[in-house]
Structures are given as C-alpha cells and as structure tokens.
Write a protein that binds this DNA or RNA. Structure first.
Length: 207
DNA sequence: AATTAAAACAACCGCCTAGCG
DNA sequence: CCGCTAGGCGGTTGTTTTAAT
C-alpha cells in the first residue's frame, strides 16, 4: 500500500516524474507479453524503476491501446455534465460511460474547463444579487433544474459542485444556450503537443 | 522578441476498501 | 476477526504549453 515505509520517496531506486519513451516501451512490451498482473511485481519484473502504482496509472491513463486522447466532443461534455450532476466527483464512474476516456482526463477537463466557467457564473451571480437594480436572480431556468434535480438525494454535496453554480451559465460564452452546451468550440487543446520528444502513442503502437 | 500570466495536462500523494491468509 | 497488501479513487501539485502584453 501506500503507507510506505518501504519504497519511500527517498528511495533513489524509485524513479519519479515524467515517463520516458523507453519506459513506456518497456511497460507496453511487458504487458503485451505477460498481461497486467500484480503491478508491483510487474514493475519489478519489467525492470522499471517505478512503483506499481505509477505503472498502473501510466498504463491506464496513457498507454492503453483503447485510450482516446484529445478533443472532448460536445456530446461527451454534455454527458460529463449530466453524470457529474448525478454522481458528483465520481470520476471513474463517469469515465465508465465515456469509452476511451480516463477518470484523470475527465477530472482535469472538469477542473480546467468547466469549473472555471462555474466560478465565473458564480461571480456574476454575486454581482447581480448585490445589484439592487437587477432582480432576475430568482428565475431558475431549465439549466438549474436540469443540473440539480438529482442532487438532493445523492451524495453529500461535493465541494466542487454547487447547483447554484450552474445558474447563470447562460452568460458564459461556453454555454451559449439555456441548456448545456450543444455546441462548444473545440479547444486548441487538441493535438497534445506535449511530446517534446517527437513521438506519439501512434508511433509506439505502430512498433 | 521577450516576458508574464493563464490554461492544460501528467503524475504523485494519501486515503479507503476489498481480498486474502 | 484481524492485520496486511494491492488496487482504486479523488484531490492536489508540478510542469509544460499557449496566449496576452
């Protein structure tokens, strides 16, 4: 486990940080030949100086052949929002309904794209509520009810989620309608150019 | 062109739980 | 039943990339 008396972070034998292409290749080859086993022993057997956890994460979030990367479509966005409204931050549960997407990716997506807009909406709300000339803050629209209907009977309120957070999303450019995004401009975040090393998963899998 | 700020993404950390001896 | 371990999960942090000035 991770009550880690052993394999502690001071252990010079344990590598941390970004994975190299060599490590990726080793992991992929090993799993291709032996399958996924007990991750700790897999890491050792494969000769990787990584924790089992690290290997597992790398495999699940990045190396698996069926993992989809890049643009999250508007349909997927919509699904994510619906499922998040239902289940809160149950990222892995949500991810199961988005084939090829990982919980980590969805989580990051939520934090970077959606939460930002919720915050903005909240700020606007505060402004508008403190503005006596603006009294439209009690008109709960479809968006509100749609997103919050199931909240009450579900898990304890997630800190990242507040039904009211969704109110006012109509103001946000990313949510052009009263509903949830039916069409959201695809972000330039496609083409993950994170490969300074000039290689991609396609390259690896073609080997 | 250089610098800074913001956004996006990858990876780690620590807690929780299930399974096994 | 109890303790231990591995795996899974959600939160958070660190790094890289992109956009703005």
């Amino acid at each position: 486990m991770d009550k880690r008396p052993c394999n502690s972070s001071e252990d010079p034998e344990v590598r941390k940080g970004p994975w190299t292409m060599e490590e990726d290749m080793i992991l992929i080859n090993y799993i291709a030949n032996h399958g996924e086993g007990v991750w700790n022993s897999l890491a050792k057997a494969a000769g990787l100086k990584r924790t089992g956890k690290s290997c597992r994460l790398r495999w699940l979030n990045y190396l698996r052949p069926d993992v989809r990367r890049g643009n999250i479509t508007s349909e997927e966005q919509l699904l994510i929002m619906e499922l998040h409204a239902k289940w809160g931050n149950r990222w892995s549960k949500i991810a199961k309904h988005l084939p090829g997407r990982t919980d980590n990716e969805i989580k990051n997506f939520w934090r970077t794209r959606i939460q930002k807009h919720i915050k903005q909406a909240e700020n606007f709300q505060q402004q508008s509520t403190s503005d006596p000339t603006n009294d439209n803050h009690h008109h709960h629209q479809a968006s509100t009810s749609q997103m919050s209907t199931n909240m009450s009977q579900h898990e304890p309120m997630e800190t990242t989620y507040s039904p009211s957070s969704y109110q006012g999303t109509t103001l946000d450019p990313i949510f052009p309608t009263h509903q949830f995004p039916t069409l959201i401009p695809d972000q330039p975040s496609c083409c993950p150019t994170n490969d300074n090393t000039d290689w991609s998963m396609e390259d690896i899998w073609s080997m």
